[in-house]
Amino acid sequence: MTGAIAGYLPLFDLYLIHLGLAFSQYIVLRAGVFSLATAALAGIGAYTAGIFAVNLGMHPILGLVAGTLTGMGAAVVLSIPLARLRGVYQAIATVAFIQIVLSLNIYSESLTGGAMGLNNIPKTVGTVTLLVFAAGATYLIWALERGRIGRAFDAIRQDEAVAASLGISITRHQTLAFALSGALAGLFGGLEAYHAYALDPNQFGFHLLITVLSYVILGGRNSVAGPLLGTALLIILPELARPLAENRMIIYGIMLIVVINYLPKGVADTFLDWWRARRLGRQGGAP
């Protein structure tokens, strides 16, 4: 029995790391920014943490702090130009940002190991550490969206003009969302570095962008349950049936098309809406 559970432990670790990245993607979409930069920000955090451990021999805690701060810093710097753009233009600019980070990473071989990647990172992060950080991130997002900031995000996402007329600073809130997104991506990138022994530059490219985006789209973009459920479904699904695992990318693709067309709010949010409507209906029906 313990053997069976231990067999699924790597999967659970993957879930916890990707959950953090999914929250990083979630928080910007929630604030109405169409940024896809999470993959690049996670790469920046992971490499910072990795270089701190390998080249400088620092303590992992320092490395994680540095990863979080560089991720956040990069995101805040990125938010300045992005504040001038909207919609599709933001998406393209962030995809360009991913390409810039990727090619600089491969080019600066002496620092990052180039195309060979960064190897021999001491493994200092286990399941318990990941669980603590993932729980912390979930709580942070949950607390944030229940408060004033969460409502401000909703207002901005639904209609910027109305939000601005209510005295909500759009630039300030979107910068905040970016800073959070960068910090989460940097932190969980750093955790990935200390969990996986080695980093490869292409790990943080277009592929990760699609994976993380799929989690949020499938789960839902309007409640903390969205990324929690979406990440779980997409990680467990290919494990349930081996033939599915070989076609993982086809499943992701079909899932993206079907969900965005027929269930645009995502699985978790659709269910929550249905549940709330049912409860309201019952209360209304009672004499």
């Binding site: 599709v88 990318m249 086809i250 992701y252």
Partner: peptide, 19 residues
């Protein structure tokens, strides 16, 4: 919802075709 949804949906189509 084509501006946001279109990007997601076509990423999906690209994945299916290239896989």
């Amino acid at each position: 919802d084509e501006e946001f949804g279109g990007i997601i949906s076509s990423i999906g189509a690209g994945l299916v075709i290239s896989t």
